[in-house]
Design a protein around this nucleic acid. Structure first.
Length: 278
DNA sequence: ACGAGGTCCTGCGAGC
DNA sequence: TGCTCGCAGGACCTCG
């Protein structure tokens, strides 16, 4: 579920709460979420360790530990990360995958209903390999429209799919891909290698604008997503296309269309504004 | 090398 | 009411 703006919000909210805390009695309730680390090793490394900082890379939460390792959590569709008081209610314990005591500040809990989320424990070398597989961060100050176009333009695949390809660009998922393409007035199914440089400039600005606005709104809550303080985001109120199939285009009142033709994911667009052939 | 498609999970709402 | 089916914000892996 959470894409770049949601993870940015979670990290922003939780960072001041968890940074500098010593970790106590970690508990893992579902070992099937682990990648490249055993349960025994994860618990051993976490216990007594200290959180140096909380960061975001693409859609992933990165917990930097004093020991030098990084605990990486991919929230995927239904994952959430929340700090609860020391004792969890039954509701809070439900779907808990990993809970870690924070000395003096309750518990850090990774919850995930569908359990598609994953947990990684990486040393410097593992982290380097991990982060190098992911494309550039779209909101970095020095990221340019030219770089952006270079990441996409060699593919014959639909631009929407390419935009969501994490190896090409970090952090854009289905919601913001739909929104950015609408704003740039681009047909989501257009092959990436058939998009002009000026259209790439427009898409670049749209991607950055929509991500920034969504961060300001603390993310988009469709169902499960909550901020680090347990609140709903508010960007769902101003979505222009995502989830609005059958409703009128906010720009021209034409009925919006939803298809699953691109990579099997819900794609909503305005055929008139985005120049889609019917 | 690239792209298509399957897979990991559970919950929910629609439709019968 | 209760069942089945399809769908859901993601990313990885295998196959061709």
């Amino acid at each position: 579920m959470p894409e770049l703006p949601e993870v940015e919000t979670i990290v922003h909210d939780l960072s001041p709460v968890v940074t500098g805390r010593t970790l106590t009695s970690p508990r893992l309730h579902h070992a099937d979420v682990l990648r490249q680390v055993s349960k025994a090793r994860l618990l051993h490394v976490l216990h007594g360790n200290r959180i140096e900082g909380l960061e975001r890379r693409a859609k992933h939460v990165v917990v930097r530990l004093q020991s030098g390792e990084r605990l990486v959590i991919q929230l995927r569709m239904t994952g959430s990360l929340v700090v609860y008081p020391a004792h969890l209610t039954d509701d809070e314990r439900r779907y808990a995958v990993l809970q870690i005591g924070l000395r003096g500040a309750g518990q850090l809990v990774f919850r995930d209903v569908r359990r598609l989320g994953t947990i990684w424990l990486l040393d410097d070398e593992g982290w380097l390999a991990y982060t190098q597989r992911i494309g550039p961060e779209p909101l970095e100050d020095d990221f340019t429209s030219t770089q952006f176009a270079r990441q996409m333009q060699d593919s014959r695949q639909a631009i929407k799919k390419v935009l969501m390809d994490q190896r090409r660009l970090a952090g854009v998922g289905n919601i913001y891909a739909n929104e950015a393409l609408f704003r740039a007035r681009l047909d989501p199914s257009r092959p990436a290698n058939r998009i002009s440089q000026s259209q790439y400039r427009s898409l670049f600005r749209s991607v950055r604008a929509v991500l920034r606005e969504a961060i300001r709104a603390k993310g988009t809550t469709v169902r499960d997503y909550r901020t680090g303080t347990g609140q709903e985001g508010s960007f769902q109120r101003v979505l222009r296309v995502y989830g609005r199939g059958g409703m009128p285009c906010r720009r021209c009142r034409t009925t919006l269309t939803t298809t699953h033709a691109i990579d099997g994911r819900a794609t909503t667009f305005c055929w008139r504004c985005q120049g889609v052939r019917r």
